[in-house]
Simulated assay, not measured.
Amino acid sequence: MHIRQANLKDIEEIAVLFNHYRMFYDQPSNVQAAKKFMKERLEYEDSIIYIAVYKGRAVGLMQLYPTFSSISVKRAYILNDLYVVEEARGKGIGQQLMEKAIQFSKDKDASYITLTTAVINTTAKRLYERNGFKKETEFDTYNYSFI
């Protein structure tokens, strides 16, 4: 198992993983849109993408988006995407991706990492809680959606 920061050479594998991630959240399959989106993230350097390789195959990805905390006057990160292909689950890959996200954020002196997951995604919630993430109870979150 090897986890490393992704680059443009990884775009084909990242696009397939990201497409599967989106399908997990009931989005229609669209590898071309996934490829375009992820390529832009890498070219514009506006996210940090890690890829997990197991037995020579890309089996997982994790994407962090930088943001800022006005209150702590520090950088923060949004862990927006964490995905492991179904046949590679249960091997600790999600845990290693989570550890990478936490270490990367600590190394950047971030004040926090935030994430959102589906209410029914109990497996992911167990992973997050096992790694010290707490369910938000102090603030209400609101979204204004254009889709």
Rank of each mutant, 00 (worst) to 15 (best):
S29P: 08
S29H: 10
N30P: 09
N30F: 05
Q32E: 15
Q32W: 08
A33D: 13
K35D: 05
K36L: 09
K39P: 03
R41I: 01
R41M: 03
L42C: 07
E43R: 10
E45F: 05
E45M: 10
E45K: 15
S47E: 11
S47R: 11
I48W: 01
I49G: 10
I49A: 11
I49R: 07
Y50E: 05
I51R: 02
I51D: 05
V53M: 11
Y54M: 11
K55V: 05
K55R: 12
R57T: 14
A58C: 05
V59S: 10
V59K: 08
G60P: 08
G60Q: 09
L61A: 01
M62G: 13
L64N: 03
Y65I: 14
P66A: 04
S69M: 00
S70A: 03
S70H: 01
S72D: 00
S72L: 02
V73Q: 15
V73K: 11
V73G: 10
A76P: 02
A76G: 06
Y77W: 04
L79D: 07
L79N: 08
Y83C: 10
Y83R: 08
Y83H: 12
V85S: 08
E86G: 04
A88Y: 05
G92N: 04
I93H: 02
Q95K: 15
Q95D: 14
Q95P: 01
Q96P: 04
Q96V: 07
L97V: 02
E99N: 13
I102W: 07
F104K: 11
S105K: 02
S105D: 01
S105I: 00
A110W: 01
S111G: 11
S111R: 03
I113H: 02
I113E: 03
I113F: 02
T116Y: 07
T116L: 11
T116S: 12
A118H: 14
V119G: 02
V119F: 03
N121Q: 03
N121L: 02
T122S: 13
T123P: 12
A124V: 12
A124L: 11
K125M: 15
L127H: 04
L127N: 03
Y128S: 11
Y128M: 13
Y128A: 12
